[in-house]
Every structure is written in structure tokens, then in C-alpha cells.
Design a protein around this nucleic acid. Structure first.
Lengths: 206, 206
DNA sequence: ATTTGATTTAATCAAATGATTAAAAACTAA
DNA sequence: TTAGTTTTTAATCATTTGATTAAATCAAAT
């Protein structure tokens, strides 16, 4: 007998509720500190349902991590490979894209980085990211601009350092700078304009 | 009866062995993923000894975290408050200091940041760091240089982003850049010279 | 040598936790 | 309705894990 589809939005299905709760709790507390009971409670479901739908804590985590990586990487391919934009324009677009993304998902990068450190094996499975980045038009423009003088990887570090690091360090920075979430976000908005200018200045300085 | 001191170096005492093992394991895996048995094994001691000397996993962790924070903050006070050095010189010294520190303790910042996120309460107890930083001669020079144009916190973010972020992201960067640990460290050494030049260029650009 | 206090060990406990099971409930197709 | 299927629940298991205990060992002082 064929299974019947229920008339539910993806958001309200039990499976989706669990996945969203898992994403929230895993991202906040990390794999090891997360109890499957935390996820069940957050999702408002019976604990056994988690295993009914996802088999195990680890499988559910792998799913969440995969989607987190995609959230972080997807949506920049277009920017990286636009043949009609200059390097500076790409940097501007990348900065804006990541700042908008991370204002809403502040602890996404810290989650990804700390879980990869805790379990480096998980990364290798997933990544075509290296190829996407290193064979992109963006990277070629970067190589052409820096040519021979310095490793273009330096400027990858710089761009991501300027853009992503404030979010990674936000728990500390907000205290040190005495900023509310709103003020912090406003600072990040300012950076959308400044980062491309700064990177330009850095590129010219070498 | 007065307790007799044993003839031991601090390094070989059981207590010190446990603390070093704890620092290693906690830093690598984080609080939640660390088993007290892991620490005992790493230290080569019986599990009960850990509780004999440190009462609990949490007390031992707090100790390790406090020393980690000190390791990260101590040794820059002199740099920050040197009235005879220019802003650029301070940036150069800070970059060199942190790059040397983090070449040896690569996952120190990721450890600190992810544990603070997991348990933000832990931070407040410890910090005079904010005052040390914001009242330093360094910060005053930064304010004077950027005056009104942009929040000097932007440049704190920039300096730490350029210096510390590569280490935070090193698990990813080493894969993307296809670098060995040695090559990665060499890149970081290059940055000691470049970061002050870059920050200068950024300061002039605003 | 004996005593005394500090250190270390093996064994064990109680709670937490990931997972399973069997039964109940809800739902669908006939 | 009824039979069959999927979804959900309550109860329970087995293991892991932080911590404790009581006994053994060790080092120094008398």
C-alpha cells in the first residue's frame, strides 16, 4: 500500500521540528554538550521520536553539520565566479553576504570550526569547498593582483579574518566594547563598506 | 606534625602532571567532550587522584581556563602601555607576540572562545581584561589616530582578526591552502612583518 | 622499629544518557 | 466501519561517567 503524503508544511512536520531543534541546540552547545533530551524538549517531542526519525544522535548531528556547512558555503559560488565583477566588487559582495548571514547566525562559524577541531575527520567527507574556492574567478583575480609578491592565501585569511572573526569573537568583543547586540550589528553593517576599502589599501601596500 | 616537602620539580609532581594533562585534553576536546578518565590516562595516574587533588572535573577545568586566559592576556600589558613606542610599533609587537604564542598553542583561542560561548557566565568572573585594554596607552593611541572617523573597536577587530583568526580557522585553512604545519607556521611568520604594514594602510585609508 | 600523615590504588556507587521495545494512538485506504 | 500502516508514547536497558570509599603503600619523624 502506497504511503500517503500528509498535508503539512515542511516547517511543521515532526521530522523538520526535530531537525530545527537539533540545529539550534547543537549550534549553541556543540555535539558533546548536547543531550538528545535537550533536543527532544526543544522540539516538543518524545525522546524516542528522535531515534525513530534519525536513528542516532550522531546521524542527526552529521545532518545538521552538513547543512551548516552548506549554509556557510552555498550562495557564494555566484559571487566567486562572476566574470563581470572586479576583485574589489567581489570582496564587497562577500563581506556583505557573510555579514548579513552571520548577523542572523552568529555562532555558525564558531560551531563549525570547533566541531571540526574536535573531529577533523568529519570535514574530509564533505568538501568540494577547496576546489570551488581555489578554481574560482575570484581566486584567479586575487593571484593576479598579488602575483608572486605574497601568497594569495594571506588575503583569503585577511578577508575572512576581517569579516568572520568579529562574529567568532563576539562574546568577548561585546563585553570589551560594551556593545549591545544592536550596536554590535550596526558596527558590522559599517564593516560592509569598510572591508573592501581596507582590503584594497592592504593590497596596494604590498 | 609539619608536612614534609618532597624533592620534586613542579613538572614531575603528581598535581602538576594532572594539571598539564587536563590542559592538553580540555584544550583539544573542550569541557563536555573530555572524560576525567581521559585526563587520568593522559597523566598516567589513577582516576581517583584527579578528585583527590582537584575535587571535581569542573574545578580542574576552571583552573585550566583561568590559566589559559592568563596565557592569552598576560605578557601584552607591557606592550600595551609602553609610552615610548608608536602605535605601529605596538601593533608589530602584538602581532609577533601572538603569532609566536599561537604557533605553539594553536587551539588556545578556539578553546577559549568556544568555552565562553558554551558558558558565558564563566567569563565575567575573571576579567579585568576590558580595563587593561581600554585604558591602555595603546587604545588611546588608537583613538587618537582614528579620531571620530570610525569606532576604534573596528581596529581592535582588525588587528585580532588578522592575527588570531588564521589560527582559529587553521583546521580549515590548512586544508584549503594545502599547507603542512611547517608551511602554515612559515606563513604566520610572514604575517608578523605584514600585519603592521597592512594595519597602517588601513588606518590611512579611512 | 613504630607511628603518623600523605599519597595512591582497586572497587564500587549513583546519576545521566543514548538507545530500544512494546504497546497505544492516529491516520489512511478499502 | 475495519484492516493495515505510520506515528507517538511510556517504560526500561545497558553503558558511560563523575565521584566516593576503604584499604594499601609510602615517606618522614620520633
Amino acid at each position: 500500500m502506497a504511503k500517503m503524503e500528509k498535508l503539512e508544511t515542511a516547517d511543521s512536520s515532526t521530522e523538520e521540528k526535530i531537525k530545527e531543534a537539533a540545529a539550534k541546540v547543537f549550534t549553541q552547545k556543540g555535539f558533546a554538550a548536547t543531550r538528545t533530551r535537550d533536543i527532544a524538549e526543544e522540539a516538543g517531542i518524545n525522546l524516542a521520536l528522535l531515534n525513530y526519525y534519525f536513528r542516532s544522535k550522531e546521524k542527526l548531528f552529521d545532518l545538521v553539520m552538513m547543512e551548516s556547512l552548506q549554509k556557510f558555503l552555498l550562495g557564494v559560488r555566484d559571487i566567486l565566479n562572476d566574470v563581470n565583477s572586479s576583485l574589489t566588487e567581489k570582496i564587497s559582495q562577500l563581506a556583505s553576504h557573510y555579514i548579513e548571514l552571520l548577523k542572523v547566525n552568529t555562532d555558525l562559524p564558531l560551531f563549525i570550526l570547533s566541531e571540526i577541531r574536535a573531529n577533523p575527520g568529519r570535514l574530509e567527507a564533505n568538501m568540494g569547498a577547496k576546489e570551488i574556492l581555489l578554481q574560482s574567478n575570484f581566486y584567479k583575480q586575487l593571484e593576479a593582483t598579488t602575483k608572486k609578491k605574497v601568497d594569495p592565501v594571506h588575503f583569503l585569511m585577511n578577508i575572512f579574518g576581517l569579516t568572520v572573526f568579529p562574529f567568532v569573537a563576539s562574546p568577548l568583543l561585546r563585553i570589551i566594547g560594551e556593545k549591545s547586540k544592536t550596536e554590535f550589528d550596526a558596527l558590522m553593517d559599517e564593516r560592509k563598506k569598510m572591508i573592501p576599502i581596507w582590503v584594497d589599501a592592504m593590497l596596494k601596500s604590498i
